[in-house]
Design a binder for these strands. Structure first.
Lengths: 351, 351
DNA sequence: TCCAGTTACTGAATCGATCCAGAAGGGCGG
DNA sequence: CCGCCCTTCTGGATCGATTCAGTAACTGGA
């Protein structure tokens, strides 16, 4: 067994408090004694105060948790998520805090347990589906948190973008280009993970809050332009992945009157859509495609999209958590978005 | 203040042990009493056993630490690192373990403190520079760990590839194509972070173990082919980033007899080299470039490289940590690598 | 010389649980 | 009816530190 602080104290012949002070409050004892203590500790192989015991007594851990709805391994696959975490990490680092990444199992009970068992001083909640239950669990623990995706309560800390307005901006761009027959591509559009076509029925039923807002924003733009919702098609991807985006998009080829544009709810899906369209011979590449997020690959692919500041979002979230503003009302921060027009969007082809 | 387990016990009129059992050992009490306890807890807003206290008493945390030498935010920028963590996350998930990401400050003392304070049951040590000091600190804490990069001690758990042989294979590929005047591109080649040209002096002096092995492997191939080391040039990138790779490569243009190929120690650097060469008018694009790792962008860029199974490396590392083989000698796992020839390597141009 | 003010250190209480030996009560075979 | 086992629950010790009020010795100013 490793020696404890107590053992060191006994070896040196001082009280435990003094040994503790040697580590955490050097000014509380003579530097001579301190040296003697540290030397003895070294000799005995004492690794310093146990982090867990220290946390218990001190009442805080020194780590912030980042909650992901989906599996952790998936989280790292999503470029936007990675950039978000990068931002969180950056801020955490500045505050000498570690990062505890917590994957939330899909079932509510498991998710609750995960949050209850996480040794963290607070949480950044990254874009989850069944968010409310999770926030409640955090509240029960009495820990602070920052959300990013769904509509926050008035007194919750939050950082995000105006999803709906941002989505509106890309859609309006397509409308301006003359597109009227358009497919909206989102993941998790229906509770059951169906893939394929759907008529736009009631977007408010979409369970995933971010997707819902974005689809609503898309729909807004068409409504404004007088395009009937019935002219729109919704493609449901099984996942927010490139492959799922491609798979969902392939359904278009089977339509009698295929759309002239695909409006995706994320860049990842949009890239998938491009993949699928490229397979479609001459017709495919003529279809306009837009994304959302502006991940790195978007630039390479020439994807028209809406940029949101991913790292900044993460950084701001962590900052909001680690050193909260005096004024509670300053706890909700809206980040700007920009429409980035590249080469994947263009006027409706004449033919 | 949140109620504690003790408060719940008093409210229900049972002992603390019983409440504890209600949460962690349902078979130790009648289900009727258990229900009563949980109900009372719910009423009082008791969030369940405190993770820190539980960890202290139980003697383990339920999280594995991943140690990064560089800043956390940088770690997420490196595609290879991200894939490695993805693998670790996957395995951790299977074992119901959280991930604690621990950035190690560049200074030895800070790094030691970070390791001493990390609340984890064991560590995956991702490719660090001053690795030995860190491993010692972990050993002092008596915690298990798995390394990936440097040469392990006989009884350390380790997962990795034969860096030198793998590096040899790309270099041999270039030799076969006729290249004789070649630049080796690595980061952190010298202790002081110099950028620019260097003659190959003594590769064994390179501080970063992985870079050292790879450069050595490159050199091997040329030695075998009878190419004098003096024919080789070493480019030192300040960082393992695309930009740093590009910056280092620009020095080539100033050489009287520029190399016909650039052998990079990582894909990230290689992509940077390609960027730089593309700027160089007609000469640049003729230079062959090879990378190392086979990250996703490598395929897109047509980069010739050596593939190593990144996710698998992470997964194996975590697996080795979380459920170690009976036989200690099975604790060192060598993963396979493959030479992937694409379009950035070709024969020496005639001119 | 005396008292106030520092400095250096001690001891007991505490953080919030889990563990373990053991007690009380019920069921059952002999 | 006794003894044994099983189930259900209890109390106290314990995990490894930190905190805080308090003691003792020393310093310095009047």
């Amino acid at each position: 067994m490793k020696p404890t602080l107590r053992a060191v104290a006994e070896a040196v012949g001082v009280s435990r408090s003094t040994v503790s002070n040697a580590y955490s409050r050097p000014d509380q004892l003579s530097s001579e004694l301190r040296e003697r203590i540290l030397e003895a500790a070294r000799q005995m192989g004492y690794p310093g105060p146990d982090p867990t015991a220290r946390s218990l007594r001190r009442g805080f851990v020194g780590a912030i948790g980042v909650l992901f709805t989906s599996r952790l391994s998936y989280a790292f696959t999503d470029p936007f998520a990675v950039r978000f975490v990068t931002g969180v990490a950056e801020a955490a680092e500045r505050h000498d805090s570690s990062l505890l990444l917590v994957p939330l199992p899909p079932d509510a009970a498991g998710a609750r347990r995960a949050v209850e068992n996480a040794a963290a001083d607070g949480f950044c909640v990254y874009c989850t589906g069944g968010e409310e239950g999770i926030l409640d669990t955090i509240r029960r623990r009495g820990l602070p948190f920052v959300t990013t995706s769904s509509r926050p309560r008035a007194d919750d800390r939050w950082v995000g973008i105006d999803e709906r307005a941002a989505a509106h901006s890309v859609a309006a761009h397509l409308v301006d280009l003359g597109h009227r027959r358009v497919a909206l591509l989102g993941h998790d559009v229906l509770p059951r993970a169906e893939t394929g076509l759907l008529r736009v029925a009631d977007v408010t039923d979409v369970p995933h809050p971010t997707t819902r807002e974005r689809l609503a924003g898309f729909a807004d733009a068409f409504a404004t332009a007088g395009v009937a919702w019935s002219g729109l098609t919704v493609l449901t991807a099984a996942d927010n992945t490139r492959d799922a985006g491609a798979a969902a998009t392939r359904a278009l080829a089977r339509m009698p009157e295929p759309p002239t544009a695909v409006l995706a709810a994320s860049d990842v899906l949009a890239l998938g859509a491009l993949d699928a369209l490229r397979e479609q011979g001459e017709w495919g590449p003529q279809v306009s495609v837009t994304g959302f997020d502006d991940i790195a690959e978007a630039a390479t692919a020439g994807l028209t999209t809406v940029r949101q500041p991913a790292e900044q979002k993460g950084r701001t979230a962590a900052e909001l958590l680690l050193d909260p503003p005096e004024d509670t009302r300053a706890g909700q921060i809206l980040l700007p978005t920009t429409l980035v027009v590249r080469t994947t969007s263009g006027p409706v082809p004449r033919s």
